[in-house]
Amino acid sequence: MKIGSTDEQLLAGLARNDRKTIEILYKEYFGMVQAFILNNNGSVDDARDIFQETMIVLYEKACSGTFELTAQIKTYLYSVARRLWLKRLQQMQRFGTKVETLEEVVQVDEDLEDHQKKNEAYLMMDKALTRMGEPCKSLLEAYYLQKKSMQEISNDFGYTNADNAKNQKYKCLNRLKKTFFAHFNKSDG
């Protein structure tokens, strides 16, 4: 991935979680978002927070595969950052602050609602995994995320045989599901 790549190439890179793509996007657009936040009652730290969240929204869109780029990445990022910052300002009770809009903006409300849901799920999963503790967490990560075989896991975690490991995996996953869905349903209803 090089500077000067097309928006489509950048999106594809983003979906692959390509580090170089992230770097390019940072170099190209962070300044714009930062200037916007600084001009609207924000700090440098606010700018970094908002830009990260904006990038995650773009990443989610890129991963969804259904994303058709109707606007330039630049416009999209600016619009998302602007909405996120407006929301943050409201949460900080700085009502009545008129946010200057210098750049073109596009409608991103739906995407942000989507992101909101995904972010909630993310935070719940994070909480559930942290709560579970070891060795459950590592065991599940090894099997479900790193896709290791039960045999490898038995060796790594020192189980006497694969059946023991399977038993353990089953119990751990059940616990994780329970915590996750408990949070999930709570926030749903």
């Binding site: 979680n17 990260q52 990038m55 995650i56 991963c63 999963m125 599940l140 990560e141």
Partner: peptide, 16 residues
């Protein structure tokens, strides 16, 4: 859900 979480986490780490 678990995989999405993992990927997003990896992406966020990369960002940081």
């Amino acid at each position: 859900e678990l995989e999405t979480y993992d990927q997003t986490k990896a992406f966020a780490n990369n960002l940081q």
